[in-house]
Design a protein around this nucleic acid. Structure first.
Length: 268
DNA sequence: GTACGGCCCTGTTAGC
DNA sequence: TGCTAACAGGGCCGTA
C-alpha cells in the first residue's frame, strides 16, 4: 500500500511529464471520491508536490488536485484515449499532448479532491498532518513533545500522521523494530523518541531507495514494482525469526492494523 | 479535545 | 471442486 516512499516515487515520475500539460477532457467513476476529477477540466498543471501520503498537483489557476492513492490506487499515462474498458479505472484526464493520465484503483480506497492552493480544511488528515520526515525543524525534541502529548500507543500515533507525516503500517513496523521499541508503549523518553525518529527516517529512505514496497498492488507511474519488500525486517514476518535475535516475531491487531514485532528485543 | 469502533471496498486465501 | 468466511488497511465519521 502506498506510503510516503511510494507516493514520492510517483511524484518524481510525474514531475517531468505533467507540468505544463492542459486537461482537455476528464471523466470519473460516479463515486464522490472520484468525481472531483472533472473540476480540473481546462486547467494546466504546474508543480508536482507531496505532503505525507497525499499528492498535490497544482494548477496554474491556483488550485490543487489532491490525490490519495489509498490502498490500491495507481496513476499511469496512457495513449490518446482512456482505457474505459478497465473496470478499475476511476478517473482520467485527457491531456493536450495526446496522452491520458489515468487513476486506477481496485478497492476504491483512494480519493481525489480539488481545493484552492494550500487550503486543506476539507481534508482532515492533511489539515492536521505533522511535519515532513526531513523537515529540518523536526528535531528529536519536537518529535518527543508531539508523542508525549498523546496517551495512545506509539504505533497508533505514528499512523495518525500527527507526530510526522507519511508513515503507514509497513514503515511504522519497520521503524519500531529498528528502534527496538514495543508498538504498544504509550510513553517514550526523549532519547528513545529521537532514536525512533531516526529510524522512521531511515526506514522511509530505504523505501525510497528501493523505489517503494510492492506487496501486491503498488505500481509506479511506469508500471514498475518497488524492491523494498525484499528488505523488510518486521512487517509481514510474523512467525519468522527476528533478524536481530532469532526470537519468533509476534503479531497483533493494534488500531485495526496488523502489527508485527519482536517480543524479545522490543520488550515493553 | 481525545479515544474508539465501524465503515468503505474487492481480490486473495484459508477452511470446510 | 466449489462455496463461504476471513483478511488486508488509510481515512473518515459518529459516538462516548
Amino acid at each position: 500500500m502506498p506510503e510516503l516512499p511510494e507516493v514520492e516515487t510517483v511524484r518524481r515520475q510525474l514531475e517531468p511529464r505533467l507540468p505544463g500539460r492542459t486537461v482537455v477532457e476528464a471523466g470519473s467513476h460516479p463515486s464522490a471520491k472520484f468525481t472531483p476529477a472533472t473540476e480540473v477540466t481546462d486547467a494546466t498543471f504546474a508543480s508536482m508536490g507531496r505532503r505525507g501520503k497525499f499528492l498535490l498537483l497544482s494548477t496554474t489557476d491556483d488550485r490543487e488536485l489532491v490525490v490519495h492513492l489509498g490502498m490500491t490506487g495507481q496513476l499511469r499515462f496512457g495513449g490518446p484515449d482512456p482505457q474505459l474498458d478497465d473496470p478499475y479505472l476511476r478517473a482520467w484526464w485527457r491531456l493536450d499532448d495526446r496522452t491520458t493520465l489515468e487513476f486506477a484503483d481496485v478497492r476504491r480506497f483512494g480519493r481525489l479532491r480539488v481545493v484552492p492552493a494550500g487550503d486543506y480544511r476539507t481534508i482532515p488528515t492533511l489539515a492536521v498532518a505533522g511535519p515532513e520526515p526531513w523537515d529540518p525543524e523536526l528535531t528529536g525534541r519536537r518529535f518527543h513533545a508531539a508523542v508525549k502529548a498523546s496517551k495512545r500507543a506509539i504505533k497508533t500515533q505514528l499512523l495518525s500522521q500527527r507526530p510526522v507525516a507519511g508513515v503507514g503500517n509497513i514503515y511504522a513496523d519497520e521503524a519500531l523494530w529498528a528502534a527496538e521499541i514495543n508498538p504498544k508503549v504509550t510513553r517514550l523518553g526523549e532519547d528513545r523518541a529521537a532514536r525512533l525518529l531516526d529510524e522512521v527516517r531511515a526506514a522511509l529512505e530505504r523505501g525510497l531507495d528501493g523505489g517503494g514496497t510492492t506487496l501486491r498492488d503498488y505500481r509506479n507511474v511506469e508500471g514498475g514494482t518497488g524492491e523494498n519488500q525484499h528488505r523488510l525486517a518486521a512487517y509481514g514476518r510474523a512467525g519468522l525469526p527476528c533478524l536481530r535475535c532469532g526470537t519468533v516475531l509476534t503479531s497483533e491487531v493494534i488500531d485495526a492494523r496488523t502489527t508485527t514485532w519482536c517480543p524479545a528485543c522490543q520488550r515493553r
